[in-house]
Design a protein around this nucleic acid. Structure first.
Lengths: 212, 212
DNA sequence: TGTACATCAGTGAACGCGCGTTCACTGATGTAC
DNA sequence: TGTACATCAGTGAACGCGCGTTCACTGATGTAC
């Protein structure tokens, strides 16, 4: 999962238990789901006693909140990677952002649900709020590049933000839930074909698309 | 919540414990969330001993599955009500369907999440699969009315189904999660204005919209 | 209508389990002199 | 460099709690005659 460690490993006792706990929490989340997630399970996976996490996180909520914040950072990285490989054209950039959104959800369904749908994170946490806002702002910037209008002052542009966000988020959530399996033709396409269709769907949500 | 009872109440022992348990389960779900849902809590709410539910549901999964199936029936009713009050024009009908989708999610967020995002239901259950398919088919029919083409045989029409479903589902899920609070102008509108904007957003997803 | 019996919905005590939390402890690391 | 002490990350036993599950039971309802 995450690879930031072994730097300080064996430096002090465990080395970097905080990072190890976050890694273990992600595995626990993926294998057990948010519903069956337990601090004791995380400690066991990290190979420490069940009382050890208390030195780094006050409780499960604190650990999950930190994990969600890291999730947003990786979420943004996934989108940037997609955009880097795409044409610099604003619409291609927006579609790439959306494909990155879906990529991340499919690759990390449990983490995605934790970030967007769970009550088990502390939304007033500063790191989480900052990371979450950064993700939102990336979308706002892409829409601004297309509409040439600042969504924070122009309701029409903000409506585009909302519409694109909704369609991308809806695709991601339905795909995670396995609901697209019902749509057999989509499942039978190869990667390129499927992405072309998803890009087309994503771009429908911005009105500038239609008026061009 | 549900009002089907007192019919047979006091008829045999409790009367209709099965229905009472489903009512109690919905309250438990709303107050505790899927994550903290417990059979004992449901029994307590229904005013029976914690072992009583076993006579009607094998376990929490069985109870939640039955509740999800009922949820889909009410989900469809909510959409039909919206459509009944709308113009018979196919696009107005589609927008009404979408508004009903959002209505239901906002009025029953926990139940909505149980239906669409939870691992705690048994998806191979016949009643649940039937109810869920009926909801999907309603959307398929509305798209067919607009495109004049059967989505089950025409991939272009099915893509419209997917796109409309995604945008409506995304709106619903983001609104439940409180993510639209960031979009302040939307929050300051009255009911009619907000619904006009949501309808506009929903109709963007169908390509027939743009080509007309 | 009356009695005797069968059925079965709901009871309540008991169980084992995993959970979060507490707390006295151990022992490795860091620091003062 | 060496010793003595402080710090603090991690240990492991113990706790109380709510959970699902089991099971012998009670007693109301239904049925046979």
């Amino acid at each position: 999962m995450r690879k930031t460690k072994t730097q300080t490993r064996t430096a002090y006792h465990h080395g970097d238990l905080r990072a190890a706990l976050l890694d273990a929490a992600e595995i626990e989340l993926t294998k057990k789901g948010v519903e069956a997630f337990s601090l004791r399970g995380v400690a066991k996976r990290a190979g420490v006693s069940h009382a050890a996490p208390a030195h780094h996180f006050s409780d499960a909520r604190g650990l999950l909140t930190a994990l969600a914040a890291i999730g947003y950072e990786r979420f943004i990285e996934t989108q940037k990677r997609r955009q880097h490989d795409a044409s610099p054209d604003p619409k291609a950039q927006l579609a790439a952002l959306g494909l990155g959104y879906v990529d991340f959800a499919m690759a990390n369904p449990a983490l995605f649900r934790l970030m967007f749908s769970s009550e088990k994170t502390n939304k007033t946490n500063e790191a989480l709020a900052t990371a979450s806002s950064a993700a939102f702002d990336k979308l706002v910037v892409e829409i601004q590049n297309i509409t040439k209008s600042d969504p924070y002052t122009d309701p029409i542009a903000m409506t585009d933000v909302m519409a694109v966000w909704a369609i991308v988020h809806g695709l991601a959530d339905l795909m995670i839930a396995g609901r697209t399996r019902r749509i057999t033709f989509l499942e039978n396409l190869n990667k390129e074909e499927r992405e072309a269709i998803l890009s087309d769907i994503i771009l429908r949500a911005s009105t500038v698309q239609a008026s061009e």
